[in-house]
Design a protein around this nucleic acid. Structure first.
Lengths: 339, 339
DNA sequence: TTGTATGCGTTATCAA
DNA sequence: TTGATAACGCATACAA
């Protein structure tokens, strides 16, 4: 492997000049520059990035902390981050936390050891105080995370209003008994989605029937189980809002087990608009989060931090959208009205 | 940030000793070791990894090249790689090629510049000659890839036999007109799956009806479109083998559009056993690839290469499994038989 | 078992 | 505009 000094010798200049040609070409006379470039080409020289990183104490690498890479929601965000990062000469280091708190803590070591220049945390579980502490020392950005008192830039959607919108949609379709299976309540995001649901019911003068509100954790299984249980009671909803599409599918499959038709006997609205939402039968009415864009935006914010630019705003709520498909019954209703 | 010399001073030893405590503790007397560790603790010293990497010309980082991170198949393999990597002190750098050949080429620069110690390529598109060329210079391993003349370690399943198994299953259920929608035929993997399909038909004395063999590219859309087209003809299969679950779902939805019942009117077998396969209606009979394990194994092989161990075998075919669910009709048949 | 001294390849400072 | 040279922080060969 040729090194800078080899290039310098061949070009008849000093290593300093070679370095300049690479990093600050305008500071070198055209003639010398050409000689150097020619030598670089001839030797097929590649700078030793390890030396450069060491010398400059920067890695051009960012760390992305993912609770679960197999989850398509996170995978899509990572896609957006990766795209924006490589566009700007940054590389993406991936770390799966498997939702283990100690792994989130562990990632701080990476930053301290200067292994990465910054970090994006997807749905972090660390408490705000700790996050603020980290953020005061290193460039970090959060995604699909909300903060009670935002001091760190984060990218999300407005989970309260989106859930409101989803629930309202069901209410407007005439449902009085709208149930909800929540995400884990230690997550602010879940609490927000729960809040939006309750607010909508309240605004439309509907009482909240706590028997129709169950606790789950975003998964298919929890949706299926909670719904099976609910349908085992004599007290049954005509519509359910689920905080994830996976859960919505679990709910629908539970309904099918009980010989209920969806949407005729039970209307369901999900959340995320995963790829399979449109392939499922019935296709899911759901809230679409702009996941890829959220990834891009997170990286943009991190780039600003890395470049020392100031970020005026910490809260970056991207627009979500209610996608109306078949699971809520709106389309069938529409057809009936037009017949 | 305290450095090694700070620790050395505080502990009253030389930097060499501190370095030894960190990297080769057995070479240091217990007493000194304790002094040093105490100093490290007191100063909250973290080694500067950039310096270490530079000095040792290794990064403890590997590159994973992914055709598409949003695809759950790849995401799951990456999960396995990540798990095995972090278990062994390696970090995973992710690079999305978006199936662009130039990005695969570009990744070679990463290796040349010593930015990573090795690379795992998922379903690479580069030709074997180029791959061999890279492999002769750098530690690389391939996953979900097969090679005509294996010179590089790769992890895969036996795509011929698995497809044979899937097709055979349909034939044994009594189907004579078994169709197949292929993946892209420039991929050896697709050709293998096609080969298994043809072999099964041949072995069971069934003629291959080329009208029932269509070309697709693994996607839902291609499955849907090709099946819609096939069902538009007067010449229709009673069973179809699809080389991906997404495609199988597309096929099933196309069948539903044509008022066909699955599996009664059309039996379908997919491939991959994605998470959604069991949630879909009907649940998919499919070939399960041990994706997470394949990721782990790939990393294990790369670790061997990185440690200079010899790899006796280049071909690592992991066992796949035919998962029988509802889309093929075997369960219903079984029920009938027992009634 | 420990310390001394040197170098890894690049970049930044300073002087020319 | 260029060159000489000194770092950057750690690891190792060699000496003690």
């Amino acid at each position: 492997m040729p090194k800078m000094s080899d290039v310098a010798r061949l070009a008849g200049v000093s290593t300093a000049t070679v370095s300049r040609v690479l990093r600050n070409p305008d500071a070198v006379k055209t003639g010398t520059k050409e000689k150097v470039l020619e030598a670089i080409h001839q030797l097929n020289y590649q700078p030793n990035m390890l030396a450069r990183h060491f010398r400059r104490t920067e890695t051009k690498t960012i760390l992305v902390l993912v609770p679960n890479i197999i989850n398509t929601v996170f995978a899509e965000i990572v896609g957006g981050i990766e795209e924006q990062a490589s566009k700007n000469g940054y590389r993406v280091l991936l770390r799966n936390t498997a939702r283990k708190l100690e792994r989130e803590y562990g990632s701080i070591e990476h930053l301290k050891q200067r292994q990465v220049d910054g970090m994006i945390m997807l749905s972090p579980q660390l408490d705000e105080a700790t996050l603020n502490e980290i953020s005061s020392q290193f460039p970090i950005v959060l995604a699909t995370a909300n903060l009670e008192t935002p001091k760190i830039p984060f990218v999300s959607i407005d989970n309260v209003s989106s859930s409101y919108k989803a629930t309202e949609h069901l209410i407007r379709l005439g449902h009085k008994k709208v149930g909800h299976i929540t995400g884990p309540m230690d997550s602010l995001l879940s609490r927000h989605r729960n809040e939006g649901y309750r607010k909508a019911l309240g605004d439309y003068g509907l009482d909240i029937d706590e028997q129709l509100v169950r606790r789950g954790h975003f998964s298919y299984e929890s949706g299926f189980e909670q719904m099976m249980d609910m349908l085992g009671q004599n007290h049954v909803p005509t519509a359910v809002f689920a905080p994830s599409d996976e859960m919505a599918i679990g709910i629908i499959n539970a309904a099918k087990e009980h010989q209920l038709r969806v949407p005729e006997d039970l209307a369901v609205v999900g959340f995320d608009n995963i790829r399979f939402a449109s392939m499922f039968n019935p296709s899911l009415t759901t809230i679409a989060q702009p996941l890829f864009k959220m990834g891009q935006r997170s990286m943009e914010l991190l780039l600003k931090k890395l470049n020392g630019e100031s970020i005026s705003q910490t809260e970056h709520l991207l627009p979500d959208e209610l996608i109306i498909r078949d699971s809520c019954g709106a389309r069938k209703k529409g057809k009936l009205l037009h017949n």
